[in-house]
Write a protein that binds this DNA or RNA. Structure first.
Lengths: 260, 260
DNA sequence: CACATATATTACTCATGGGTAATAAAAAGT
DNA sequence: ACTTTTTATTACCCATGAGTAATATATGTG
């Protein structure tokens, strides 16, 4: 199954120059871990597997993480960070309800096609420590509330026809989350194609029937759902936070290390 | 967490009359197992947990199943059986594409709100033996093909407006499968309410704009999407196959027992 | 070079939990 | 009742894999 020839490009060269920065290695661990966790499942993938793929041995991992559970949590956190940035960007975009919903659907779909994105929905929160589990569940609730809010906003501003925000949010989020289960990174569909298609398909049934050409309420020129103003929002090739740790990330959980 | 007081209604009375039929016990094991597997995850739930809830001890389980993995597979199989019956019923219903799709959405949604139904999407096929994993993956593909076929049929017969069956099927199935992740059996929403809502919401964006009042193409009287002709199709309270074993079920995997 | 620090290795511990062996207690058959 | 079969129990085995201790090897620094 996991043959010995798996040296994609690990910062640890088999037995030579090892001088790369600490954080790059930390992230390499997470990339390998999330890949194996998704492929085999958290419980079936062992830390030996992870270490072997990186040309190191299991105890070396403990220089970067305190436990397997922490690795799991950090994988989830990297996906969650992407979503947080997406939502933060949309919240200041000034779009109407439907516009915000579409932007969220689009960016969220693309995130689900990444491994860290998929980890948000493929991992079982029950495998985390009680504290981390609480954190994850709170974040999930927050995402759900965001979907509902955009929908409710749209109903109020007239861009979305009346509907039950709760069930509608469930239906849309379900479609999106499911991407994390079926999307094959080597398949025929590109993340962009999926994102575009879903942004249309999932919202077309919701758009209010042109009740007064309200749909383009605050976008003078044509930047309707093309490119976000600035800041994160993922730039269509969301390589997992290649160095999200130079400056201390705004969240309090980047770049921690075991007691010493 | 799992306190000692958990004797819902186990066929094994703590220390008295034990004379119920074998198959009832077998199913009781599956009901308890699927519940714990969903609650704690397959790997965290132990066979000791399962046995304890049934007022027996772990080795007693091996009178009914050969391994933990077999229990997992049988849980999945009970859910799959429901879906097979649903699809078989719809296939002979004579509805048009949209009608079949709506019927499937409705019944599938209700199944996802059961524990055996949820097990189809919450369990990781990788935890099964290679053979069983193949079986499961084949069944999943088959369901996917069914969704796509109904959609494609609808596009051809004019009841569904042109769309990409593959992505549309993914979107709809995703919403439905996700029910298995969020639905709480003790919550405010009834399975019927969800099923009804989803049947409408997920297909309203697809219905062709009355291109010639084709939508009721083959239903002389008004039985449009109300009640299925006969056969299975779940009757709104799909209690998990309470005795699906009296007659040897049409599938070949009911009522097996360890070597003796 | 000597010393400190960071990072890796080898060789272990040890709890967990699936599964089995031997045996006892019911149920069923005669 | 006596025998057979089914179903349960107690008491184990043992593979697995997370995590640790002791130690070695770079790497950089005064």
């Amino acid at each position: 199954m996991n043959g010995p020839a798996a040296d994609d490009h690990s910062p640890w060269m088999p037995f030579e120059s090892r001088r790369r920065a600490r954080d790059e290695k930390r992230e390499a661990v997470l990339r390998t871990a999330v890949h194996l966790f998704l492929e085999q499942g958290y419980h079936r993938a062992t830390l030996n597997d992870v270490a072997e793929r990186l040309n190191i041995t299991k105890p070396a991992l403990y220089n970067y993480f305190r436990s397997k559970e922490e690795i799991l949590f950090e994988c989830w956190a990297l996906g969650q960070e992407q979503v947080d940035e997406i939502i933060a960007g949309i919240n200041v975009s000034g779009e109407n309800g439907l516009g915000k919903l579409r932007a969220l659907v689009r960016a969220y779909a693309a995130t689900m096609a990444t491994e860290f994105g998929a980890s948000m929905v493929r991992f079982n929160p029950r495998d985390l420590s009680p504290d981390n589990e609480k954190t994850v569940r709170a974040a999930k609730r927050s995402i759900d509330r965001t979907f509902r809010r955009y929908i409710a906003d749209g109903v109020v501003d007239g861009s979305i026809k009346p509907c039950d925000p709760k069930l509608t949010a469930f239906a849309i989020a379900g479609s999106l989350n499911w991407i994390g289960h079926w999307y094959q990174r080597d398949g025929a569909l590109s993340p962009e194609a999926i994102a575009d298609e879903f942004a249309i398909r999932l919202t077309e049934g919701l758009a209010a029937r042109s009740t007064k050409k309200r749909s383009a309420i605050k976008a003078p020129d044509g930047n309707n759902n093309r490119k976000r103003p600035k800041g994160g929002l993922h730039e269509h090739h969301p390589r997992p936070a290649a160095r999200a740790a130079d400056q201390p990330g705004r969240a309090g959980h980047r770049l921690r290390r075991p007691p010493t």
